[in-house]
Amino acid sequence: MKLFQDKVAIVTGGASGIGAAIVRDLADEGATVIIADFDEDGAIRLADELGRDRAAPFGVDVSDPQAVEATVAFAVAQFGGLHLAVNNAGIGAPATKLADIAIDDWHRVLGVDLHSVFYGLKYEIPAIIASGGGAIVNMASILGAVGWAGSAAYVTAKHALLGMTKTAALDYADQNIRINAVGPGFVTTPALEKTMTDDERSGLAALHALGRLARPEEVAALTSFLLSDRASFMTGTYYPVDGGYLAR
């Protein structure tokens, strides 16, 4: 039997990069996956690739709580419940020293990278309880554990996300919900390839003990494990998948 047979999952930011790799993993293991993304066209393409019996696209701005609530309501209405969720959507920002960050830019990054996770948990948790329990993974970063010059908003969001994850896990452990966070190192994604030169990517790779960037599938593998019953005694914890970055 497949790991997620007859389970319903939501993956935010699921149309590309790490999110798409997670969607593919879950669908391959039997889940019906809502691909929730601001890029609705990308979500539609991935759903068509996987088959509409395994995936459904849903356009969402995760910084809007009503839109996040609507995503969960869609999952329940269309597929009868919700068992799994990955709060993966996130954005970065140009490198800027803290005092030079524009107020609007600060709120934009915190809105997508932190507040959206709260909105997700707020609406996912009651739906998962109503379905008999399940698991949630919040996508953090190695920058949830260390700083990075010029990225105060992003680093703040990821540090706060870890505290939220731990507290939520304690709040709902007695209602059969496990909640963990995954902390990728730097990952080869379309966004990274668009915004960095080859030399810049090589410099990032050298910061990892393994001497390379992660592949989205490597982050997806850990995420899927934490969502599965194989991780049944794991909750409230942060799990880096970082090629040795934090060991230095």
Rank of each mutant, 00 (worst) to 15 (best):
I101N: 09
I101M: 09
I103P: 07
I103M: 14
I103T: 15
D104E: 14
D104Q: 13
D105N: 14
D105A: 14
D105C: 10
W106H: 14
W106R: 13
L110D: 13
L110W: 06
L110P: 09
L110M: 15
G111Q: 11
G111R: 13
V112M: 07
V112T: 15
D113A: 10
D113T: 09
L114N: 05
L114G: 04
H115Q: 12
S116G: 15
S116C: 13
V117K: 06
V117D: 00
Y119G: 02
G120D: 06
L121R: 05
Y123V: 07
E124R: 00
I125E: 01
I125T: 06
I125D: 01
I125K: 03
P126K: 07
A127F: 01
I128P: 00
A130M: 02
A130F: 05
A130G: 10
S131E: 04
G132T: 06
G133Q: 00
G133I: 00
G134S: 00
I136N: 01
N138S: 12
M139W: 03
A140P: 04
I142Y: 09
I142Q: 06
I142H: 08
L143V: 11
L143M: 14
G144L: 07
G144F: 03
A145L: 10
A145R: 11
V146N: 13
W148C: 15
A149D: 07
G150L: 04
G150M: 07
S151G: 11
A152R: 07
A153L: 10
Y154F: 12
Y154I: 08
T156N: 12
T156Q: 04
K158N: 03
K158I: 02
K158Y: 02
K158P: 02
K158S: 01
K158G: 00
H159V: 07
H159N: 10
H159L: 09
A160D: 10
L161E: 09
L162T: 13
L162I: 15
G163A: 09
M164P: 00
T165I: 08
T165W: 02
T165Y: 06
K166N: 10
K166S: 10
T167C: 03
T167L: 06
A168D: 07
A168L: 12
A169P: 11
D171A: 14
Y172G: 04
Y172V: 13
A173S: 14
A173R: 15
D174F: 10
D174A: 14
Q175E: 14
Q175N: 10
N176P: 02
N180M: 11
N180Q: 12
V182T: 08
V182G: 09
V182L: 13
G183F: 03
P184W: 05
F186M: 15
F186T: 15
V187G: 05
V187F: 09
V187W: 07
T188L: 13
T188R: 11
P190M: 03
P190I: 05
